[in-house]
Every structure is written in C-alpha cells, then in structure tokens.
C-alpha cells in the first residue's frame, strides 16, 4: 500500500467551505482513515500500559476524605502563620513545621476563577458545557480552596467573585471522594 500523506483535509475542507469559499484549499496526497489502522492496512503497533496504583492517603488526605463522606469540609490551621489550609496537609509549607489543629470549614465559598469547557477530557464535543472553578472556601485563608465544578447555573451567568455552595450526593451514595460533592451552585 502507498503512504502518500496524512489526511486532515476533510476537516480543513469543512472549515474552509464554511468560512470563505475563495479560501478553499486542496492538499495533494491520499488521506488515512482511522479504519485503515484498525483494518491493518497501515503498519502500526498499538501499545497500552496496564498500570495500577493505590495511593496511600496518609493522615491529611485520609481525614479530608472521611469528612467528605460525612458531608463536611475540614482544613488544618498553622498557629505560627495563622493560615487555615484546605485541602489539609499535616505541615505548613511556609513555616516548614508540623501544623497544629483540625478545623471544620463551611461548604461554601467564592469563585476565584472559572472556565467553561466545551470538550470532554477525550476531546468529544459536550452538549452541556462543564464549568470548572477554583472556589475559595469561606473561613480558610486567601487562595485556599477546592477545585470543583459549578452547576445549576447558566454558563453566561457565572462571574468571578460569585458566592457558591456545595451540593452533596445523597448520604448513602458518598464514598469518601471529592465527587461526594456533586458540584457547587450559586447561593
């Protein structure tokens, strides 16, 4: 078989037809389709690692996840720099010392930044866009928060500085994971 070119022109065609007829371009060569690889028309080697991990949560993440299961957010406080940290860690990276106490925090906060995501993780188009946001949790120090999704809100209505609140899964469906919070919604 002949390998004459890498075929992207179908898509380029579509774009060029759509945008400007005079801009229409033609590429020389034969395009390759995904099916050509599947049908082994093209010599190729597929390789997929089979890797599995189970990370030790340790003290800080372990407690954080256990509290999520109970529908609560918990942080750690450093008595030297007075920062309240979430997600929690057992040491203060600024003072470089073990930090001091657990502290429950409210399950609400303020949107620090957000984006509206129109493609899924594997680059499929999404009908309903996802809205990832960094949420500064109320009661924690500045710039301390949780990365999560926003919900029950029109994308165009999301604003930086918006107050939001966690929407939790039903208690029997929680498993001690960040997804025990379904999303944050505007207050």
């Amino acid at each position: 078989m002949e390998l004459k070119g890498i075929g992207l022109e179908e898509e380029i065609f579509k774009i060029s037809k759509k945008s400007e007829k005079s801009m229409k371009m033609e590429f020389k060569g034969v395009s390759l389709k995904e099916s050509d690889f599947k049908e082994k028309k093209i010599l190729s080697l597929e390789n997929k690692p089979n890797l599995k991990y189970a990370w030790d949560t340790g003290v800080a993440i372990g407690r954080f996840l256990a509290e999520l299961k109970q529908g609560r957010l918990i942080g750690r406080k450093c008595c030297k720099c007075r920062r309240i940290m979430i997600p929690p860690r057992m040491f203060c990276e600024v003072c470089f010392k073990p930090n001091d106490e657990w502290i429950y925090l409210k399950d609400k906060g303020t949107v620090n930044t957000f984006s509206i995501c129109y493609v899924s993780w594997d680059m499929q188009k999404l009908k309903e866009p996802q809205i990832p946001a960094v949420i500064e949790i109320e009661g924690a120090s500045k710039m301390m928060g949780i990365l999560h999704l926003l919900g029950e809100v029109e994308p165009k209505e999301v604003k930086i500085g918006m107050k939001v609140k966690a929407v939790w899964k039903e208690i029997d469906k929680r498993e001690g994971a960040i997804t025990d919070i379904k999303y944050f919604k505007p207050i």
């Binding site: 030790d56 340790g58 003290v59 057992m90």
Partner: peptide
C-alpha cells in the same frame, strides 16, 4: 507497606 503516611508526610 506504609499506609499510615502519604508520600508527602513520609518525605516531610
């Protein structure tokens, strides 16, 4: 095994 500590806590 070291389930009592995360890698961060172990390195700390």
């Amino acid at each position: 095994i070291t389930p009592q500590l995360s890698y961060r806590e172990m390195i700390f």
